[in-house]
Design a protein around this nucleic acid. Sequence first.
DNA 1: TACGGCCTTGCAAACGTTTGCGCCAGAGCG
DNA 2: CGCTCTGGCGCAAACGTTTGCAAGGCCGTA
Lengths: 339, 339
Amino acid sequence: MTLADVARAAGVHSSTVSRALDPVSCAQVNLETRQRVQALAKRMGYQKDMVASGLKRGRTHTVAVVAGDLGNPNLAPVLRGIASGLELAGLMTLISETQFDSERLERILNHLVSRRVDAIIMTAARPRDAPRLRWIRRQGIPLVLAIQTVPGIRLPACTNDDHLGGVLAARHLLSLGHRRLAQLRGPMEFSSCFLRAQGFSKTVAAAGAEEVVVKSTALWGTPELGASLMRELLDQKGVRPTGIFAHHDLTAFGALTAAEERGLTCPLDLSIVGYHNLPHHDRIAPPLTSIGQPREELGRTAAEILIAVLTRPGRTPAPRLVRPSLVVRESTGPPPRAY
Amino acid sequence: MTLADVARAAGVHSSTVSRALDPVSCAQVNLETRQRVQALAKRMGYQKDMVASGLKRGRTHTVAVVAGDLGNPNLAPVLRGIASGLELAGLMTLISETQFDSERLERILNHLVSRRVDAIIMTAARPRDAPRLRWIRRQGIPLVLAIQTVPGIRLPACTNDDHLGGVLAARHLLSLGHRRLAQLRGPMEFSSCFLRAQGFSKTVAAAGAEEVVVKSTALWGTPELGASLMRELLDQKGVRPTGIFAHHDLTAFGALTAAEERGLTCPLDLSIVGYHNLPHHDRIAPPLTSIGQPREELGRTAAEILIAVLTRPGRTPAPRLVRPSLVVRESTGPPPRAY
DNA sequence: TACGGCCTTGCAAACGTTTGCGCCAGAGCG
DNA sequence: CGCTCTGGCGCAAACGTTTGCAAGGCCGTA
């Protein structure tokens, strides 16, 4: 079922059919034939071959989102925001997952380039991926970063204001009266974690409070990691911190479990602020104070940026930030009297 | 950077370059020129244009997975299984999300057909989608169902053995001594829910125990739904059931909350079995007895089936089931004495 | 009537790759 | 020496769509 088939049935040339079915060039064809051809095409079930069209036009009307880990519960709303934003512009969204494996990332990017996608959105870029990002740019494919940015490479991006997130967590704990604080960080190669840590530390230092440093790790976002970081923290000599900022809700859960093992209860003995405000954790004891982010909005904003890039090539739009907010629940309270 | 460019640089015809770079037809070209051309192509950064290749060959080496809701935590491992299975066969996986919106589904399928994907895997098919599935089949595109099947349409499929899941839940509760049971079902249009319900009910009836019927709803998998179903159950006159089978862990959580509102505690006053064995819920009180499924295996099996379909067209492989298993935790116990 | 301009349509050349076919040279054989 | 066979390569026609160009018809004006 090709243009030629429809053309034959309609008694016109295939170029006329092509024009009649194209929303922009259909103005060139006589109203009567246009309607006749359109009706016929629909009746015959004609479907434009986007492969052939893409070859000729160089535009595939497809943008790829390359994600790190689809299991990350934060990601789905972002993807949804992206897809619904791009849909408005007539673009199709295709998703793939690198699992943070460089080799897989390379395979995926090669494939996307050779499939001639119109643009790429990367949601989990790390500094080590910079060479590949540059390569994509050299191929002339518009690239937008989301969620994570990478320093030293100038690209349009849409991220959460993670610095502010760190500040909010610190302010909350400080305002409750905590003076000894600590962070259970995610991997610092992610800009999000780096900025959270920075915002938190600066705010703590500015208030003249003390921050106990716990080394950050390569892994992230599991209760196991949270538990091990917490044990390490409690094993340190000196006065233990009373206010904890975990870079991930699940890390916070693990930390709570480890704290309970040592006979500490939350929020009496220590307070903890999580990150991401993961849904459906109401039944967890105690309900977690957390930093929430407008995930779907982030996705939609990334889509907006991408569309701006496509419609005005050359100009790279300014990076955009979406604002997180503090959600206070029951895992934070004043520090114990003794302190 | 096209074949012609490489050909010019190598002093051969573009067809020779094409053959030299194709793993199967490269046997036709002299070893020395083959190596020269391959090296040159690599050095020049040549990348085959899959759009042009797809147009000529009719094969795009791409398969699409259309999912219902990417936010579903069950889905990510399945997608990962599919992707890693297909990767072995040199196929690229593209994911898209319908959000259970028929219009969006139609748009997506249209796009996929006109992008000439080699095959499609659907993970959330419902009976109402049958016409579109048939349409896909008429287009000659191989289609495999995963997770959900749809009755009355003969398609290769890979699903969990949901019937067995229902049976396991029922047997567990019966073996603890429960005689009055109830289900908090998911939407019965999903084959998974229908089969779970069937397996459960049959087993209960066969044991001569009683099942209190709660109407199933259109929504699914939220604590709110679980709470409202549970309230409805507790409002019914007659003796309340002591053994509950929820079709989703989150539904179970909501049900527990509602039960606690009425002063009932779990597992003393009632036992509850969830479904999906969602990870990272260790801190939830009480830890949930649940039916777990090998999600990644399901994905890999779906990929296997798809590859079988592609390599042996005509023969439709038999549907495959992966076996769920019961994970006993603390939300189930013997019924209270009074019963 | 002649001419210029618009509207509509057809023609054909792309886009980059693949592949059947045929050509040529060299080898093997009678 | 002539024949066939084969390995290696070039030629050109596809795949289905798009689009610049031009042809033809029609209208209005001089």
